[in-house]
């Protein structure tokens, strides 16, 4: 028997680690991975609250989040590839202009 708040704390810790990675990492791909980590942490808290209140509706919401995350990953990685073609670098410090 585990208090549900433990799951929420775990979700908060994972979200914070994702935020830290987003702010601290200097590689475009790793920054993008941190966004995925944040999405996963939010999904965990969705599932926890679904367990608490409405199991089915909450899980359907997580399913939609997963679909949007998959679409976002595909488009984001395509953008990363085209940025790399234009700049030949992945360092976020050097990618600070939208113009070529």
């Amino acid at each position: 028997m585990i208090p549900l708040s433990w799951y929420l704390i775990l979700s908060a810790v994972l979200f914070t680690l994702g935020v830290t990675g987003f702010l601290v990492k200097r590689n475009l791909i790793t920054v993008f991975m941190s966004i995925e980590l944040m999405l996963n942490a939010v999904n965990l808290s969705f599932v926890t609250f679904a367990h608490l209140w409405d199991p089915v509706k909450g899980q359907v919401f997580v399913f939609f989040v997963m679909m949007v995350a998959a679409a976002e990953a595909a488009v984001g990685l395509a953008i990363i590839i085209s940025v790399f073609r234009a700049r030949a670098t992945l360092a976020v410090d050097q990618i600070d202009l939208m113009k070529l």
Binding site: Y7, L10, N43, L44, V47, T48, A50, H51, P55, Q59, V62, F63, M66
Partner: peptide, 11 residues
């Protein structure tokens, strides 16, 4: 695995 522990099989 944590989802499975919370009863979300499909997820």
């Amino acid at each position: 695995v944590l989802y499975l522990m919370l009863g979300a099989e499909f997820l």
